[in-house]
């Protein structure tokens, strides 16, 4: 095989891994669950064994649901600037109760699942037994850019947060991170401690500006769910929208 053919083959393979063209409708927009029920989405990449793909997707859906019910978020960001060097150090720590995972595992049921060229998708409900959603099994292409990717929705009833990531080789990791960042963004919108010291030193010739900035929060967030996702194919950006009732 000629080197050019090998290069072409690898390029096409990489593109196929990264691309995410078709998705179930409920992956783009989470349907409203009936009163007393919770919906959550799980997903996994390509597996040779479909049962393993399903297992991975269910495991992610269950952990997503546990985080949805209750999650402790610890966020800290520090930025140092001394006029020449900049150092930015954000840290994100999320933990959720193992008890919720065990409870969900005991009593959940699959509402719908889809296999696309990219992987396996599953929508679960907790407690189990909710009726099948009407729009189930509709596999579609990404819609046009939603308004929430530009401007945070305004609502008296809900708080929102947006997660954005780019340049990921795996779409599964990209969505996992976008979902987490959206949850952390919601937390920051609720309450954050902001501390900073700005200093400017000026003499006859130079002005040296230095800055130390620290922002942090440590909160337990209840009932926060990822209600919408959107993939910007043109710029390879993954967006997630997280919502929590006020």
């Amino acid at each position: 095989m000629k080197p050019f053919s090998v290069f072409l083959f690898i390029s096409v393979f990489v593109l196929l891994i990264n691309a995410q063209e078709l998705i179930p409708a409920w992956f783009e927009e989470l349907p409203e669950a009936p009163a007393g029920f919770h919906f959550a989405v799980g997903y996994s990449g390509k597996y040779f064994d479909q049962s393993l793909a399903r297992e991975a997707a269910i495991s992610l859906a269950v952990s997503n649901l546990a985080k949805q019910l209750e999650a402790r978020l610890i966020f800290e960001l520090e930025e140092y600037t001394d006029g020449r060097l900049r150092l930015l150090n954000p840290s994100f720590e999320l933990s959720y109760d193992e008890y919720h995972v065990l409870e969900i595992n005991k009593n959940f049921s699959a509402v719908d699942s889809s296999i696309t060229r990219d992987g396996y998708f599953i929508l679960i409900t907790y407690p189990g037994g909710s009726r099948r959603h009407r729009n189930s099994s509709i596999v579609k292409k990404w819609g046009s850019r939603p308004e929430w990717t530009i401007q945070l929705p305004r609502s008296e009833k809900f708080n929102y947060g947006i997660g954005m990531v780019s340049n990921y080789s795996s779409w599964v990791r990209a969505w996992k991170d976008a979902d987490e960042y959206a949850r952390f963004d919601l937390g920051k919108n609720l309450k954050i401690t902001a501390q900073s010291v700005h200093a400017a030193q000026q003499d006859n010739h130079f002005v040296i500006e230095s800055k130390i900035l620290r922002q942090s929060y440590n909160e337990i967030i209840h009932d926060s769910k990822i209600i919408a996702r959107w993939y910007d194919r043109e710029n390879d950006i993954y967006y997630s929208l997280c919502r929590q009732p006020r």
Binding site: A194, A200, Q201
Partner: peptide, 12 residues
């Protein structure tokens, strides 16, 4: 030579 320092500490 002048030095100006601004310190803020708030819960938002």
């Amino acid at each position: 030579s002048s030095v100006s320092k601004q310190v803020s500490n708030n819960v938002l």
